[in-house]
């Protein structure tokens, strides 16, 4: 048995953050038409409600909207964030991934380097319109350890609630991140 199969990553320090919930945090900028365009073009989904304002005004959305789960990607690097996210690009082990799970949630004291997205459970209420500001509140609902084929895995279950600045609910999600 490999030594790391015996390691319990769910330490008291990790248990202490289960249940931690962030405040409502606003995305660095309102939804931009060009950001939305790059998004739906990369999805190869040219529905006119994403770009044709005249058409979108006649729909129940009342204007151009984003694809349904856009909000989960709205939390970009703020313009004033000066740390280069590729500063470590010369390191052969650098994988390009931020280890910060969510803005406003504490970093997890788990010494595992790999990170994978296990999946989502979504509940949708409305779609953001171009120009609207998006807010998110997150919580560590659960953190537990499982034995995977290649060693131990720490499963991190995060609940996210998204709404607009005027309080309209957008979506709720449960996301399972896998550290290994």
């Amino acid at each position: 048995m490999a030594v790391d199969e015996l390691v319990d990553y769910i330490t008291a320090e990790v248990r202490a953050v289960i249940g931690a919930r962030s405040d409502w945090i606003e995305a660095p900028h309102p939804v931009e038409a060009s950001e939305n365009r790059r998004f739906f073009q990369a999805l190869m989904d040219p529905n006119p409600r994403f770009w044709d304002e005249a058409h979108a005004r006649t729909t129940r959305y009342g204007g151009v909207v984003t694809p349904p789960a856009f909000a989960v990607h709205a939390f970009r690097r703020p313009a004033g964030e000066l740390n280069d996210s590729l500063a470590a690009a010369g390191d052969p082990d650098f994988d390009g991934v931020s280890r910060a799970m969510r803005p406003g949630l504490p970093k997890l004291p788990v010494p595992l380097s790999g990170i994978l997205n296990g999946g989502y459970e979504y509940e949708f209420f409305s779609y953001p319109k171009v120009g609207e500001r998006i807010l998110c509140r997150s919580a560590y609902l659960d953190i537990y350890q499982k034995q995977g084929k290649s060693g131990p895995m720490v499963m991190v279950v995060i609940e996210d609630e998204y709404r607009t600045a005027d309080g309209r609910p957008l979506l709720k999600s449960l996301n399972t991140m896998i550290m290994r």
Binding site: L43, D45, N47, T59, R60, P67, P68, A69, G119, Y120, E121, Y122, E123, F124, L174
Partner: peptide, 22 residues
């Protein structure tokens, strides 16, 4: 994940609603 959402939103149309998806 957005391909799955598009599948369901396109089917539900403008009078239906994709409520939950996992």
């Amino acid at each position: 994940q957005h391909v799955l959402a598009q599948l369901l939103v396109d089917w539900a149309g403008e009078t239906g609603w994709l409520w939950k998806m996992n």
